[in-house]
């Protein structure tokens, strides 16, 4: 597996508070990677560090094996679409393309023109008067026409209406189908991620809580419900991610590498949303083993 982004002990502090702290991860190349996690997990900081827009306070980060923004060649390899997809309000669509061509040595003018035509954007229109969806599409066009090896998108569709969101993701997936492109995309919209991503990372408080190919993650997790029992007595290959109990019933979300054979359990597959929520709440509440240990101590 070749790695597109690698971080080790990565941290970024603003004055006295850490936006990202001791983050270690490896993001594989050739995927559309969804980065999901609660607000404040450090997603935006991580993505801006990868794009070279921030420099680490501690630790290391490499993109394609090199320091982000190490030079013109490295800058050309990474496209970045920021939150709210900013554009220069007083400049026209055509001005944006000219600027893109001027700033980027590998600029693909044909691709840029084709996308603008497909989108039905008026080249003379000022960016300030574009709709949110059109502005997002313009930002995506500029990033794609760089012909980057890695495209980073930080919550690109959060502010868009459902139709504009779908159109944006259609454009993005079309680009992935025709270009050799790794994509890292942060979003809270798990349903969107489920459609477009084939790799998922759950980041909570700068730590990777779950990472893997979406199909493998879904295949290796199950929801179990059945008569109440002690989750500590599950087979060794079943790891409890979340659990809840009434006096009669137990409901678990587990990770396992094999079938669940115990006939007392009703076994359900999990959705990606279930899975993300489970890892986020486990991180917030502590892993299931911990509360029990605390009881013993106190």
């Amino acid at each position: 597996m070749s790695v597109v982004i690698q971080a080790g002990g990565l941290g970024k502090a603003y004055r006295r508070s850490w936006a990202l702290r001791d983050c270690t991860l490896a993001i594989p190349e050739g995927h559309v990677v969804g980065l999901v996690g609660p607000n404040g997990a450090g997603k935006t900081t991580l993505l801006r560090l990868a794009a070279g827009m921030l420099t680490p306070t501690r630790g290391t980060i490499t993109v394609f094996g090199q320091r982000p923004a190490a030079g013109p060649a490295q800058l050309a390899r990474v496209g970045f679409v920021a939150q709210d997809t900013p554009a220069y309000a007083r400049m026209t669509v055509a001005d944006h393309l000219r600027l893109g061509a001027w700033l980027n040595p590998g600029w693909d003018e044909r691709l840029a023109r084709r996308r603008i035509a497909q989108l039905g954007l008026d080249r003379k229109q000022r960016a300030g008067s574009l709709s949110g969806g059109q502005r997002a599409q313009l930002a995506l066009t500029l990033a794609l026409a760089k012909r980057p090896g890695l495209l980073i998108l930080d919550e690109p569709v959060a502010a868009l209406d459902p139709l504009a969101r779908r159109e944006f993701l259609q454009g993005l997936m079309e680009a992935v189908a025709e270009q050799e492109l790794s994509v890292v995309l942060s979003s809270h919209l798990v349903a969107d991620l489920e459609r477009v991503c084939d790799y998922l990372i759950v980041l909570v408080a700068s730590q990777v809580r779950a990472a893997g190919e979406v199909s493998e993650l879904l295949a290796s997790h199950r929801r179990l419900s059945g008569p109440r029992r002690d989750p500590g007595r599950l087979p060794a290959n079943q790891e409890v991610i979340t659990e809840s109990h009434t006096d009669k019933q137990s409901s678990l979300l587990i990770r396992t590498d094999g079938p669940v054979l115990d006939p007392a359990w009703s076994v359900q597959p999990v959705s990606l949303e279930d899975l993300v929520l489970a890892y986020m709440s486990r991180a917030r509440d502590g892993s299931p083993a911990r509360p029990q240990q605390l009881k013993v101590v106190s």
Binding site: Q170, M173, A177, R195, D198
Partner: peptide
């Protein structure tokens, strides 16, 4: 083609 499908459904080409 994969490109036509993903451009319509907004799904990952690998799918």
């Amino acid at each position: 083609t994969a490109q036509q499908v993903v451009a319509r459904l907004a799904i990952n080409p690998n799918t």
